[in-house]
Amino acid sequence: MGASALMNVKPVRWLGASAPGGLILPDAKPKRNQLYAPRHVFLDDQYLVVSDSGNHRVLIWRGLPADDHQDADVVLGQPNFETEGPGLLHLPTGTGIWEGRLYVADAWHHRVLVWERVPETINEPPSYALGQPDLQEIRPNCGGAIGPLGFYWPYGIAFVAGWFFVADTGNRRVLGWKGLPEVGQPPNLVLGQPDFYSGLENRGQSAGPNSFRWPHAITGDEHTLYIADAGNHRILGYSPLPDVDGPANLVLGQNTYYETREMPHVPQGAHRLRFPYGVSLAHGILAVADTANNRILLFTGPPRTGVGVPAVEVIGQTNFEDSGENRWKAVGPDTLCWPYGLWLHNHLLAIADSGNNRVMIWRVEESSHDTS
């Protein structure tokens, strides 16, 4: 399938302060419409949630913003929209709303915070934490050794086919629960390690189909689980969804399960990845944030097994060969600089364009859809 398979791909919304022409750092004092190095974004029919990671806060918009640079409605992690710095949150990353609850991966506090309802007012406190015994503890692995109930830099979270997953990045593993977990509930599954008490990079060996270096983001459906193994420059896919540890049967970004090459400063093509930090699946489209190549790759089908499957469309670059930040030109509505988190919903792709301090929303539809 050629690159023309997805012909309806275009930017529709820009959130975050404008950067006319060149990169502009945010002001020292944050604002309601300003972002600083956002690392994740979630979108559904009711809410847009952004991890404004550099400002150590989460911003919420009620519904899809109608205008570019629109003010956020709610801030979490700060007492107001003008305060920044670590507090309740320290580098928040993954976000999601499932069964009416808001989940935020508070990565550098080594926990996932849960609000039992989506907050409607500024700085509402979370209901409880996963990965820590209470809301006061913030040490890696609950202050002890690696175990089933602790996290070390949990960057990514997902709810896939009734399973809740956490990319426990610092422990080089993915944990899974059947259903949404409650406080103190141990996981049912560990991927990437032989047990719940191990945390070696690539299991202490060379990379393979059952190991991770930096698992960072997760997506999937009832057929396949996809994990962005950023440090090994690849996406691993498991079909069917695993309920025990085992090897993946799909790898994107590398030519084998044992290869972990990064290839900077050369034409990238449609199948290479460099530090893929984000991944999202919806409507038969798999979107991958090829972060260090400053682009988003789109795969249709989606691929479920195989090795080195090529993408069919690219966002952020004009072709599959280039990889420059903002195409080595000015910041524009269709350029990217170090995109991190992604979320596909209702043919809209929200991109945390971290290096440009903004979130971009694109319409992404296959050519068989009518967008007139």
Score class of each variant (00 low, 15 high):
G77F: 10
A37R: 09
G77H: 08
P92Q: 03
L281H: 10
R234C: 13
P310D: 08
D168S: 15
P240Q: 05
P92V: 03
E137S: 14
R304C: 02
G16P: 06
R272P: 00
I361Y: 01
L348N: 13
V166W: 04
A145D: 12
V174Y: 01
V312P: 00
L6A: 13
R234D: 06
H345N: 09
Q205L: 12
W362S: 06
V166T: 11
P30C: 05
N171F: 05
A158I: 09
P11R: 14
P302C: 13
T95A: 11
R363D: 03
I361A: 00
L130H: 10
Y226D: 07
G16E: 04
P26V: 14
P154K: 14
K329R: 15
G316N: 03
P79S: 13
V174W: 01
A207N: 10
L349G: 12
H271K: 13
T169G: 04
V160T: 12
V364S: 09
F151L: 15
I315T: 12
V266G: 02
V74K: 02
T169V: 00
T291G: 02
A248R: 01
G355R: 05
I97Y: 09
N141M: 07
E321G: 00
H369D: 05
A3V: 09
L25D: 15
N55K: 01
N255M: 05
G156Q: 01
R203L: 09
E201G: 00
V114R: 05
T169D: 12
W108V: 05
L135S: 11
F299V: 01
G204E: 07
F159H: 15
Q268L: 11
E365G: 07
